[in-house]
Amino acid sequence: MTSRDRNEPLLQVRNVTRYYGERIGCSNVSFDLWPGEVLAIVGESGSGKTTLLNCLSTRLAPTTGAIEYRMRDGAMRNLYQLGEAERRLLMRTDWGFVHQNAADGLRMNVSAGANVGERLMAVGERHYGNIRTSANDWLGRVEIAGDRIDDDPRSFSGGMRQRLQIARNLVTHPRLVFMDEPTGGLDVSVQARLLDLLRRLVADLGLSVVIVTHDLAVARLLSHRLMVMRQGDVIETGLTDQVLDDPREPYTQLLVSSILQV
């Protein structure tokens, strides 16, 4: 990555608001995301963090506001003015989306290898041997044994499914990955392994990440920057360790003080 790339934001979010009828999903959110930066959005259920994530990832159109993304050619494009074909290409090449429930992000009735290879085939890879080599490589990187390559994800444990989902997303070397509670619903030990894997992959690949979580420990381990949401508003934002160690807003102080100490 050149220094010029590093000095321009990858994603620019301006005054994004989403209403559900009369109710507010998220309100007037603005921020920049920089290359290689991990931004965590925290808040309790119903705070609007998932609404915001869906708006950012073009899965849900905002009521007002603009979201611009720096394409691989360097041009900033308004995501909601992209054509459907462009948007799909973006989502399967330059972006990733890791769902909380791995079944939402995987094809459960095709093999692990095909799950990883699908994006490659979608962008025109037509050499079976190459696809298989890539799939093998990525299964290895997410610590799934090579002899599971022809097994369905249905036979995988929750942690393995989640790692498979990550491999499936990263195989096209995306620049931006959205994650929705990627460790939710996993055992603590499985969570720790997944977090460590994510942390290393994000650093090695220089990924930009927007991660939604209600778990402050996940935010501390993975993110550079933190956004605290409450009732649709961003109430506090800053360096992750600054917000967690020196929380300013009453709600953030409550969140931080609610962490169970082990």
Partner: peptide, 9 residues
């Protein structure tokens, strides 16, 4: 120290 490091505001 923490302010210098940016850890405290």
């Amino acid at each position: 120290l923490k302010m210098i490091y940016g850890n405290y505001r």
